[in-house]
Structures are given as C-alpha cells and as structure tokens.
C-alpha cells in the first residue's frame, strides 16, 4: 500500500511538473522540427481553432502563406489599426515574440489572447505553422483564393 501511494505521489509530481513548471527551452527559428514536435505543434494549434484556420479567413486571418508575410497583409481580412501599424513581418522569431504576449507586442490587436507562456509550446506551434502554412492544402487554397 505504501509503495502504491509512493508511486502515485511520484507520478502526480511528474504530471504536475509537466503542467506547471515552465520549460526552459527557447524557440529556435528555422530548426527542422522533429515529427514529435510537429505533432505537439498541431495539438497546440487546436487552441487557435475558434478563430483561425490554415485555409480560410475567419475571426482571425488564415495561416497559409504566413511565413514571410507582412502583418496585416492577408487579403480579405479586416485588421486592427494597431496590427496595420505594427511593421511586423512574420517569421519564427516574430511569431514567437507575438505569441508569448500578443497585446504586449501589438497593443490594440484584435487577437485578445493572453498568450502562450510555455516556450516549448510556442516553439512547437511555430514549427508546425512553418510546415502547415506551406502545405498542399495551402497550395490548393492559394489557387482558389490567393
């Protein structure tokens, strides 16, 4: 019984650490992400699904073609003045900074989201976006609606 309790406590600590302790790994722009990171990135991207999709403008702009795109330049989406004035160009570094605290980086943005505080989650998300935003689905979407 004591051993079971001990094992349970260790497991609980491991789970709690995974959830609460901030990861120390920094986002690394341009790294070729392992499949596991991409899978994690796709999981993190699920948080964005109320407002974003890869292929369609929704409450937020679509993400196909995101990398290398100037902020507030996706046709057909109505951006905030703040985003229009931001001067940002989206790459791994700017996305990492923005996703950490959107309103700190672009005060007045319509992306009123506290941000992703865990650096490893941000890195995984950015790695996923870098691949997904250039996917075949995006190529098809670009042909239908540039």
């Amino acid at each position: 019984m004591r051993q079971v309790l001990g094992t349970t406590m260790v497991l609980a600590l491991v789970v709690a650490s995974a959830v609460w302790l901030p990861a120390v790994r920094d986002a690394r722009a341009g790294d070729s992400a392992p499949a596991a990171d991409l899978a994690r990135g796709e999981e993190v991207y699920a948080r964005c699904a109320a407002c974003h999709s890869l292929t369609e403008n929704r409450t937020g702009p679509r993400h196909c073609g995101l990398f290398g795109r100037a902020a507030a330049s996706q046709p057909g989406f109505q951006y905030s003045k703040a985003m229009q004035r931001s001067g940002l160009v989206w790459d791994a570094a700017t996305l990492d900074r923005f996703l950490r605290a959107p309103l700190d980086v672009v005060p007045g943005t319509k992306m009123t989201y506290a941000g992703i505080s865990d650096p490893s989650d941000r890195a995984a998300l950015v790695a996923y976006l870098e691949v997904a935003s250039r996917s075949e689905a995006c190529t098809a979407a670009a042909q239908e609606s540039p």
């Binding site: 699920a46 948080r47 964005c48 699904a49 109320a50 407002c51 974003h52 309103l103 009123t112 989201y113 506290a114 941000g115």
Partner: peptide, 14 residues
C-alpha cells in the same frame, strides 16, 4: 468548441 475553450481561457486574464 475546443478552440473556444482556449480563446476564453486566453481572454479571461486580460
């Protein structure tokens, strides 16, 4: 709906 959970979780502290 899953995205909405995160959207509200991200808005609440703001």
């Amino acid at each position: 709906e899953r995205g909405a959970v995160s959207a509200y979780a991200g808005a609440i502290p703001l």
